[in-house]
Design a protein around this nucleic acid. Sequence first.
DNA 1: ACCTGAACACCGTTCAAGT
DNA 2: ACCTGAACACCGTTCAAGT
Lengths: 188, 188
Amino acid sequence: MAQARSMRADARRNRELLLEAAVEAFAAHGEGASLDDIAKRAGVGSGTLYRHFPTRQALLEAAYVDRIESIAERAGELAERLPPGEALVEWLNELGAGMLRIRGLRALLGAAVGDGGTECCDPLKSAVSRLVGAAREAGVLRRDVEPVDVLRLAHGVATASELAGGEGTQIRRYLELLMTGLRARGAP
Amino acid sequence: MAQARSMRADARRNRELLLEAAVEAFAAHGEGASLDDIAKRAGVGSGTLYRHFPTRQALLEAAYVDRIESIAERAGELAERLPPGEALVEWLNELGAGMLRIRGLRALLGAAVGDGGTECCDPLKSAVSRLVGAAREAGVLRRDVEPVDVLRLAHGVATASELAGGEGTQIRRYLELLMTGLRARGAP
DNA sequence: ACCTGAACACCGTTCAAGT
DNA sequence: ACCTGAACACCGTTCAAGT
């Protein structure tokens, strides 16, 4: 999907309007919000939505790409300020909070660590790889755990806290349980 | 929903046909299978489906109620044969395998430990309560973890392994990580 | 008392016609 | 090159008419 200057002015404007409407709609009605409704609220024909974003997944990705990048950037800041183990936990905590606050982000990460994975969550994968690498070298992480395992489990933990209905108080507890398991030496 | 003898013979038969079709459809197309299709395959009108099962959730529950009970019963057998900690892990492993094998069971447990909870998963809640209680008394489980936390985390772990696309090899690893965290003494 | 199936509303997706 | 919106297919849900 071309996103560059090469778009006609009205096309670029429509794309922007669609994204604004999408962010609003996903926040209000979850990741399953009506696409037709999004087009209507953006003031464009439904065909225009499909021209810009051929699938729901593509729209979700475009709507949240900047959030994903800002979460990924936090990894660097935390790595500077905290020891490796704590930096990883803290980052997972922020990632989890983001998944609870921004509806649809969890679905996006889920697809990324599954088989429907696109490149949109690559910044998160790079971030967790760096944090996991550092934690391993510091000896606070078992060596048989891959970065992608950590993302999957973080996704699972976010699911668990969403089920608990909490606003982020549960996720900290669950992450600490998980981290204790990750810290222990590998199974025989 | 009356399920007793009080139903007319044709009603009881239709109910049975609907359940068979539902189990098949959920297995083939996931928990979102078309209800209209289920009615057609059962050879009844769509209104009949709604008369027996007013919501998709009600149909899911009726379709899997016996599986749920048989998983719950396994808890007792395992508790007799194994020490408390191992019995809990083993049971969680079987529960997880069930969630991966039978599509829709995970959704059902998710609803049960969330706010949309009905009484259909109560056997599972009782089972985990007994196992957790025994493990606590044996001193192999931290005391600040509630049975419902364990179910939620098991649900999360099953989600994580489903994302991994495995057929039950990952879930064992993930459960062991989780169990290590559950075993450790409570946080300060 | 229960069943049927037409009818309605809603949503996703496509595409011919328009600028 | 891009947009529009009518058209189509599909699904969930209701309800008047039938037995």
